[in-house]
Write a protein that binds this DNA or RNA. Sequence first.
DNA 1: GCTGTGATGACACGTAGTGACATCGCGGCC
DNA 2: GGCCGCGATGTCACTACGTGTCATCACAGC
Lengths: 171, 171
Amino acid sequence: MELFEERGFEGTTVADIAERAGLTKRTFFRYFGDKREVLFSGTELLEAGFVEAIAAAPADASPLDAVAAGLDAMADRLQDVGDAGARKRQAIIAANPDLQERELIKMNGFATAAAAALRDRGVTEPAASLAAEAGIAVLRIAFARWIEGPPGQDIHELLHESLVELKAVAA
Amino acid sequence: MELFEERGFEGTTVADIAERAGLTKRTFFRYFGDKREVLFSGTELLEAGFVEAIAAAPADASPLDAVAAGLDAMADRLQDVGDAGARKRQAIIAANPDLQERELIKMNGFATAAAAALRDRGVTEPAASLAAEAGIAVLRIAFARWIEGPPGQDIHELLHESLVELKAVAA
DNA sequence: GCTGTGATGACACGTAGTGACATCGCGGCC
DNA sequence: GGCCGCGATGTCACTACGTGTCATCACAGC
């Protein structure tokens, strides 16, 4: 993060990162599949909490509401990290198309995981995938507003607002 | 496409492609920003038709229905290309994570373009972005069913079914 | 026949990413 | 105490992507 803020993502070589960490390039690639991944480690945990919460949602919850419960769990962890760090991270990502691609594939991973969790709850296709995708759309919009909005805002509220808005739009 | 089917995307070097085309590597990169892009040229046209159709939708159409009109226009062009070619292409993409990332960023481009087109129609945020994202979710699911389903299927029908399903899920 | 211009080639270079092998540190074990 | 095994790291070599720079070539206009 230090190096990325100083020189940007492209301006930082893997050798630079490794040197700053007191390691070699080769070792870096043993921990991270590629250079981008260093900014996305931790996503697995986020995803795990997300699917657990979907599974744990009340049995009578609608598919979309189950996903919303998952999003709330994710929001808890995001809130813990805080918006300050998230803002820095997002600024780096926004400045680099390659990183945006990686971000999107992570989001997509969330959506497919959510769809699977919904199917485990007995939701059939294509409803499961649609609810999952719609939920991720809600997350995207809420997250963007969290990053762009005033500091210290509660992301749970933004999520809730986005969800309500989605339901209105689709009505 | 020939080379990708023979050796896979990773197994094909840019030099291979250039040689097959009777050109040099350098010239390849003057036409395509990177190796992945060669599989995604033409997306701009698809996107252009998409936004035009959104703009041309009846003034009293809801945001989501305006996006649906855009999707129908996109479906026309996809139908012209046919499912056979789309299947081959998609098989190559499915086999390579880098290509999936590129695919997602194109989809994301569609969503942001749709959101802009909706704002031009007077739709406010966050409704515009949400309707756009939801519409792209519908496209994704319908497209996947088109690729996986029986040959010769009409993608318009699949789009319509997905849209109806989304509305049910969000209700 | 001259000249400008756009497309292509030739060449060199930096960097991401990987395979193969060497080395080191450390805990267990006779 | 010395040996062994193993996981983590380093070293080295190599391929391929992507780019900057300059040369070359074809062709249109005058």
